[in-house]
Amino acid sequence: MNTTHVWAAVAAVALLGFAFKAVGPAVFGERELPPRARSVMALMAPALLAGFVMVDLAGPGWSTLDLTVVGGVAAGVGLRLCKAPFPVVMVGAAVATALLRWAQ
Rank of each mutant, 00 (worst) to 15 (best):
residue 97 T to C: 14
residue 46 P to S: 03
residue 51 G to Q: 02
residue 35 P to T: 04
residue 84 A to L: 08
residue 12 A to I: 09
residue 61 G to F: 11
residue 8 A to R: 10
residue 104 Q to S: 09
residue 4 T to M: 06
residue 95 V to D: 08
residue 72 G to L: 07
residue 14 A to M: 10
residue 70 V to K: 01
residue 91 V to I: 12
residue 93 A to K: 02
residue 28 F to I: 05
residue 43 L to W: 09
residue 90 M to C: 14
residue 57 L to N: 08
residue 22 A to F: 10
residue 31 R to H: 11
residue 90 M to R: 01
residue 83 K to I: 00
residue 59 G to P: 14
residue 38 R to P: 00
residue 74 A to G: 08
residue 58 A to K: 09
residue 21 K to A: 14
residue 81 L to P: 03
residue 31 R to V: 09
residue 34 P to N: 12
residue 99 L to Y: 05
residue 64 T to L: 15
residue 13 V to E: 12
residue 21 K to G: 08
residue 60 P to H: 14
residue 80 R to T: 04
residue 43 L to G: 06
residue 52 F to L: 14
residue 79 L to V: 01
residue 73 V to Y: 07
residue 14 A to I: 07
residue 57 L to K: 09
residue 42 A to Y: 01
residue 100 L to I: 02
residue 25 P to E: 10
residue 54 M to Q: 10
residue 28 F to A: 13
residue 43 L to N: 10
residue 16 L to G: 12
residue 30 E to N: 13
residue 96 A to M: 06
residue 55 V to P: 01
residue 21 K to C: 07
residue 17 G to P: 02
residue 4 T to K: 09
residue 27 V to P: 08
residue 58 A to I: 09
residue 31 R to D: 15
residue 90 M to N: 01
residue 34 P to G: 15
residue 59 G to H: 14
residue 51 G to W: 03
residue 90 M to D: 00
residue 55 V to Y: 02
residue 14 A to G: 07
residue 21 K to I: 06
residue 96 A to F: 04
residue 37 A to Y: 09
residue 47 A to I: 04
residue 40 V to T: 01
residue 12 A to N: 07
residue 32 E to A: 15
residue 97 T to W: 05
residue 22 A to P: 07
residue 23 V to L: 14
residue 44 M to E: 03
residue 63 S to P: 03
residue 64 T to Q: 15
residue 16 L to E: 11
residue 27 V to I: 11
residue 53 V to F: 08
residue 61 G to I: 12
residue 62 W to T: 10
residue 47 A to L: 15
residue 63 S to L: 13
residue 86 F to S: 14
residue 59 G to M: 12
residue 16 L to R: 02
residue 87 P to G: 05
residue 29 G to R: 11
residue 93 A to M: 06
residue 49 L to S: 04
residue 15 L to Q: 06
residue 59 G to I: 14
residue 98 A to F: 06
residue 14 A to P: 00
residue 42 A to W: 00
residue 52 F to M: 13
residue 99 L to K: 04
residue 75 A to P: 07
residue 77 V to R: 00
residue 67 L to S: 13
residue 8 A to P: 01
residue 74 A to F: 13
residue 42 A to C: 03
residue 81 L to S: 05
residue 36 R to S: 15
residue 67 L to D: 06
residue 34 P to Q: 05
residue 82 C to I: 01
residue 43 L to F: 11
residue 3 T to N: 09
residue 10 V to K: 04
residue 37 A to H: 05
residue 76 G to P: 00
residue 28 F to K: 02
residue 38 R to K: 12
residue 60 P to F: 11
residue 32 E to T: 11
residue 79 L to G: 03
residue 70 V to M: 10
residue 70 V to D: 04
residue 12 A to Q: 05
residue 57 L to F: 09
residue 101 R to P: 00
residue 87 P to S: 08
residue 75 A to H: 05
residue 63 S to I: 09
residue 71 G to Q: 10
residue 27 V to L: 15
residue 49 L to T: 06
residue 10 V to N: 04
residue 96 A to V: 03
residue 65 L to V: 15
residue 55 V to C: 11
residue 56 D to R: 11
residue 88 V to Q: 03
residue 92 G to V: 00
residue 43 L to S: 13
residue 76 G to C: 01
residue 5 H to D: 12
residue 22 A to S: 12
residue 34 P to E: 09
residue 26 A to M: 14
residue 56 D to Y: 07
residue 3 T to W: 12
residue 95 V to P: 03
residue 28 F to Y: 06
residue 3 T to S: 13
residue 51 G to E: 02
